[in-house]
Computed example of a mutant assay.
Amino acid sequence: MFTAELTFECYQDTTIDAVDGAITQLIDALRYNGQILGREFPTSIDDGVFITRVVCPEEESLHPNHHSSIVEKRLQALSKAGLLAPKIRLTGMDLHSDNTDPCQQPEWQVLYTHYLSTCSPLRCGEHLAPIPLYKLPTPAIGDHQDLLRWQVDWSSTDELQMHGTTLKQACSEVLTDISSPLNHTGWQLAKDIEQQSKVPTYYYLYHLADTTEPSAKTARPCPSCGGTWQLESPLHGIFDFKCEPCRLVSNLPW
């Protein structure tokens, strides 16, 4: 991942509210297109110049070739707020982020995230490295907002159960139950991505430790079809189960 600064300059008299609204809408469009990552984008002002700091999956993530129609629309709207198109300055590599997947075309991919992840929830099956969402075909709604909102829901639920709050049990059930609304939505998103990209796309089903015997844990069937899905050896040290027909992967209890 790479850090960058977007510098917005005023070319006519305007207001803080107009500038703030225009920049926010552009940043949202870039985020929902997968060109920038995360949920917080600090913006500073200095003598009529506004600077927004972002994290991008690749060095060329903000190139116009990756813009969606919504991003283009938000760029055009900047002029109504008295702003010029942003100047982009790449400031360096982000040392605390995952490296973007190097594959041009992954053989398979998986929808996988966790409460600490801010990168793309779609990962290459071979490297488990995040795939920039702007490399996917654009959904009918024009961006990947549904996918990123699911990621926020999943990450928030995971954080609550990891921290052992009073909601731990409820959150654990939501994460592990294949029929929960959270998993139903994620699994359907994975199916939609496979249909659009023509790449086999799996959904990660979280599994927690319980009181059953180890032999029973390893023998557990696929929760969808009831078939055998345990792998001979784990993938990426995470996935111990993989059901090809159902497009599901899961883990043994940590």
Score class of each variant (00 low, 15 high):
Tyr115Cys: 05
Tyr115Thr: 02
Leu116Asp: 11
Ser117Cys: 15
Cys119Ala: 14
Cys119Arg: 09
Cys119Asp: 15
Cys119Met: 11
Ser120Pro: 02
Ser120Gly: 05
Ser120Lys: 01
Leu122Cys: 06
Arg123Gly: 09
Cys124Gly: 12
Glu126Ser: 14
Glu126Arg: 11
Glu126Thr: 12
His127Tyr: 13
His127Thr: 15
Leu128Cys: 07
Ala129Asn: 06
Ala129His: 05
Pro130Leu: 03
Pro130His: 05
Ile131Glu: 02
Leu133Ile: 01
Tyr134Asp: 04
Thr138Asp: 00
Pro139Thr: 08
Pro139Met: 04
Pro139Asn: 04
Ala140Thr: 10
Gly142His: 08
Asp143Thr: 00
Asp143His: 07
Gln145Pro: 00
Gln145Glu: 11
Asp146Thr: 11
Leu147Lys: 01
Gln151Cys: 03
Gln151Ser: 08
Val152Ser: 05
Asp153Asn: 08
Asp153Tyr: 00
Trp154Leu: 15
Ser155Asp: 09
Ser155Pro: 00
Ser156Met: 08
Leu160Ala: 11
Gln161Phe: 11
Met162Pro: 03
His163Ile: 09
Gly164Arg: 02
Gly164Met: 03
Thr166Asn: 13
Thr166Gln: 13
Leu167Lys: 10
Lys168Pro: 03
Lys168Asp: 07
Gln169Val: 00
Ala170Phe: 13
Cys171Glu: 10
Glu173Val: 07
Leu175Gly: 09
Thr176Phe: 00
Thr176Arg: 06
Ser180Phe: 03
Pro181Val: 01
Leu182Asn: 10
Asn183Ile: 08
Asn183Val: 08
Thr185His: 12
Thr185Ala: 12
Gly186Met: 02
Gln188Thr: 14
Leu189Cys: 05
Ala190Met: 12
Lys191His: 14
Lys191Arg: 15
Lys191Cys: 13
Asp192Gln: 15
Ile193Gln: 04
Glu194Met: 12
Glu194Gln: 15
Gln195Phe: 10
Gln196Glu: 11
Ser197Glu: 02
Ser197Gly: 09
Lys198Tyr: 05
Lys198Phe: 10
Pro200Leu: 06
Thr201Gln: 04
Tyr203Trp: 13
Tyr204Val: 07
Tyr204Ile: 05
Leu205Asp: 00
Leu205Trp: 05
Tyr206Ser: 08
Tyr206Asn: 08
His207Phe: 07
His207Ala: 09
His207Gly: 01
His207Met: 00
His207Thr: 04
His207Asn: 15
His207Ile: 00
Asp210Asn: 14
Thr211Asp: 12
Thr211Gln: 11
Glu213Arg: 14
Ala216Cys: 08
Lys217Ala: 09
Thr218Ala: 05
Ala219His: 08
Ala219Gly: 15
Arg220Gln: 11
Arg220Asp: 06
Cys222His: 12
Ser224Ala: 11
Gly226Leu: 03
Gly226Pro: 00
Gly226Ile: 08
Gly227Thr: 12
Thr228Gln: 15
Trp229Lys: 04
Trp229Gln: 06
